[in-house]
Design a protein around this nucleic acid. Structure first.
Length: 502
DNA sequence: AAAAAAG
């Protein structure tokens, strides 16, 4: 493992990182920082929670040097306000030992403070497109001196919903500049599109082509559940697991609001983040969750990307996401910085085709979600919860459907954590786990190529294997047929992945 | 189609 100092990072930045207990670099950092420092344009791709922010952030800070001249020299664009806050905090930390000033520019907040900071000469701007353009139109934000430009969650920023804004922003920044695009997912067509804004970019993928498409530290489970029962099941999961720190994703803002109210009624300490909340309330929820004052966060896809909270144990998809990229980003809120996590997905009857798509794209090799038999409430108790396998789901029943269960059943379950738990573990070890309840740990077919990084400027293939490939993307990562690669399932990293922070 | 992002 390489230290940041060994990568050529300035001493004051190394010290700032060390203050946070960060000394060793992650692979994406090890690969992009030496290229980013001299100004190479980069498309940086690495799995969720593996350190992309510092991968682009350190070169940005270092390249600005110690020039005291006020004015915007660097621009980092992100898709959500919460991510703007987070990346701002990271950049603020990196610059803590130098005079470089950072400002977060995003909507839902008073203009005044942001404008004041710009007038005071802020040099690094982290922001969301709407407010950036707004202030630029008002001639309060001059981007013409921005020679460092980053798109974080770049594929999202170049998606239809953002593309027009991004194109506009690129007409405002310095024409001769250093441009970096980072994301965990980079479909081929997006890479091709991205080149319009870059100069001879190099595409770095800090992933071992053999290790699969998903984060190895995350265990994935999928269940079919009737939508009317999901609140109950989720409550039971949270209860049964104990000590959970969970992010629960819903498809709509209304569903998020309904679920947070429901869980709080049941005595959970839950917060929410979605676009119908005031920005103040959104940030309060995020801060409380990050600080551990709330242990459940219910969110729309506003929190699917980039948000970094320590020690999230579970991601629960109350509603299955629309595509494999969103699945990957949502699940990636757990299993960060080498830690392990669990992603549980509930699939409504109507959404089975979405599961089929995700299953295929992410090469899970999982044919069908496990049925939870919503019509037979007592079977919820047999829902095979993976994590600590702390026993059955033993929450006191609340809903009508569960109250109809046979008397004594819940009490039995609550008391029965010993024998049943070990029986369950034996069953899993012996391979008779209900079909498909877990499928992260696959058979290791042996041959494991050494981790390699592809860094070919001409390569436009994607990592998530899903989107349409453009011409250059047709070759395989390792020259072997796709089927062979698919068969070689990822190995479970034995918890020896580097731990950053803390 | 929903969510996000200016107000």
């Amino acid at each position: 493992m390489t230290t940041f100092a060994e990568l050529g990072v300035d001493q004051d930045i190394v010290e700032a990182l060390a203050t946070k207990g960060i000394v060793d670099s992650f692979p994406i950092q090890e690969q992009t920082i030496p290229l980013g420092l001299p100004g190479q344009d980069i498309i940086g791709q690495a799995k969720t929670g593996t350190g992309k922010t510092f991968g682009f952030g350190i070169p940005v800070v270092q390249r600005l040097g110690l020039d005291p001249a006020p004015g915007v020299k660097a621009l980092i664009v992100v898709p959500t306000r919460e991510l703007a806050v987070q990346v701002y905090e990271d950049m603020d930390m990196l610059t803590s030992n130098r005079s470089t000033s950072v400002v977060a520019i995003y909507g839902g907040k008073a203009y005044e403070g942001q404008i004041d900071q710009l007038k005071a000469g802020a040099q690094i701007v982290v922001g969301t497109p709407g407010r950036l353009i707004d202030l630029n139109n008002q001639r309060l934000l001059d981007l013409s001196g921005a020679t460092e430009v980053v798109l974080d969650e770049a594929d999202k920023m170049l998606d239809l919903g953002f593309l027009a804004d991004i194109e506009k922003i690129f007409t405002k920044v310095a024409p001769v500049r250093h441009t970096q695009l980072f994301s965990a997912t980079m479909p081929g067509p997006i890479v091709a599109l991205a080149r319009r804004f870059m100069t001879n970019p190099i595409h770095i993928r800090a992933t071992d082509p053999d290790e699969g498409l998903t984060q190895a530290n995350i265990k994935h489970l999928v269940y079919r559940a009737h939508s009317l029962d999901k609140d109950e099941i989720i409550a039971r999961i949270l209860q049964a697991e104990g000590g959970t720190k969970a992010v629960i994703f819903t498809r709509t803002k209304r569903a998020a609001q309904k679920l947070v109210d429901e869980l709080n009624d049941r005595g959970f300490n839950a917060g929410s983040v979605h676009g119908d909340m005031s920005q103040e309330a959104r940030e309060r929820s995020m801060a409380a969750f990050k600080a551990g004052k709330k242990d459940v966060l219910i969110a729309t896809d506003v929190a699917a990307r980039g948000i970094d909270v320590d020690d999230v144990t579970h991601v629960i998809n109350h509603t299955i996401p629309d595509d494999e990229k969103t699945y990957l980003h949502r699940a990636g809120r757990t299993g960060r910085a080498g830690k392990t996590g669990i992603a549980v997905t509930f699939v409504d009857w109507d959404d089975l085709h979405k599961w089929a798509l995700i299953n295929r794209a992410l090469e899970f090799g999982q044919p069908e979600p496990v049925e939870t038999y919503s019509s037979s409430p007592h079977l919820y108790e047999d829902l095979d919860i993976p994590a600590g396998t702390k026993g059955r789901i033993a929450t006191a029943p609340k809903t009508q459907s569960v109250r109809t269960q046979k008397p004594g059943r819940a009490a039995d379950a609550a008391a029965d954590t010993g024998e049943d738990g070990s029986r369950r573990r034996r069953r899993r070890r012996s391979g008779t786990t209900p079909v498909g309840s877990t499928f992260t740990e696959g058979v290791d077919a042996g041959a494991s190529a050494p981790a390699s990084t592809e860094a070919r400027a001409s390569d436009a293939s994607d990592q998530d294997g899903a989107g349409t490939h453009d011409g250059a993307g047709k070759e395989h990562h390792d020259g072997k047929p796709a089927v062979a690669r698919r068969r070689r399932r990822r190995r479970h990293s034995g918890g020896n992945a580097p731990v950053q922070g803390a």
